[in-house]
Amino acid sequence: MASNIDTLAQEIQGPSPAALLRRRVFGHYGLLFGVTVLIVIVALAVLAPLLAGQDPYAQSLVARMKPPFWMEGSDPNHLLGTDHLGRDYLARLLYGARISLAIGLIAALISGLIGTTMGVAAGYFGGRVDLVVTFLINVRLAMPVVLVALAVVAVLGGSLQVVIVVLGFLLWDRFAVVMRSSTLQVRGLEYVNAAKAIGCSTRRIILSEIMPNILNNLIVVMTLEMAHAILLEAALSFLGLGVQPPTPSWGLMISEGKQMMLFEPWVIAIPGVALFILVLAINLLGDGLRDITAPENRS
C-alpha cells in the first residue's frame, strides 16, 4: 500500500534531483568510460610496487630489448619486454603512471589556485582589477608555452619538482578566463545581492556564495588542464628538457625508444598508447562533467 502511494507521489512530483543526476551520469557513456579507465589507472599507479614485482631502475645486460608477450621470444618475467638497458618495461610503465598523475594533479592544483584567484577577483571586483587581470591573461596567452617551459626548465635544471612548478605557473590562463566569466554571470544574481544586503563580508560572499556556484566549471577546467599538463610534461621529457633519466616518465620512455623504433616499434607504441589512454580518459571525464552539469542539459 505504502509503496503504491510512493509511486503515485513520484508520478506527480517527478523524479527527485538525485535520481535525475544519477540518470544523467549513467546515461553518459563517455563519462562512465573516462571514470572507469581513470580509476583503473590510479589503482595501477598506487599498486605499482605490488603489481610490477620488479625494480623499474634495475638494469640487466643479458636481458636487453626483450620483446613483449605477443611477440616471439618473449620472456614470461617481462610481460611488456625490456628496454635498451634491460629494465622491465611493465614496471617502468606502472611507475610512469605515478609520475604522470602526480604532474597532472599538482600542476593543475597550482595553476587552478593562481587562475581561480585572478579570475574570481576580476569577475567580482571588475573595474581596474579586471583590466589588470585581462591584461595578464593576454600576456600569458601570447607567451609560447612549450618554448618558455623548455627554456626555464633548462635554466633551472630538469627535475620532477621543477617541471611541476613551471607547468603550474604557466597553465593558469584557462582557469582565469573561465572563472572570470562564471563569476560575472553569478555576481548580479539575487542571492549575492541578498548576502550583500544582510552585510556579509566580501570574503564570505566570495567563498560561500560565489565559489559553490561556479565550482562545477572549476572542476571541468581542472580535468582539462590536468590532461594538458600531462601531455606537456611528456613533450618536455621527450625533447630532453623535462624529467631527467633514469626516472620512468612516459615521455622519456618514448624519447629513449626513438633510436630503436626502426626495428622495434613496440618500444614507442607501449608508452604512447598509455599516455593516449590516460589523457583520453581525463578528457572524457571533463567533457562528461561539463555535459551533465550544464543547465541546458537538465531537461
Binding site: 614507442i268 593516449f276 589523457v279
Partner: peptide, 11 residues
C-alpha cells in the same frame, strides 16, 4: 585532443 603530437609524429 588526447594524442600527444610528438608521438603521433613518430607513429
Amino acid at each position: 585532443q588526447a594524442m600527444p603530437s610528438f608521438w603521433f609524429g613518430l607513429v
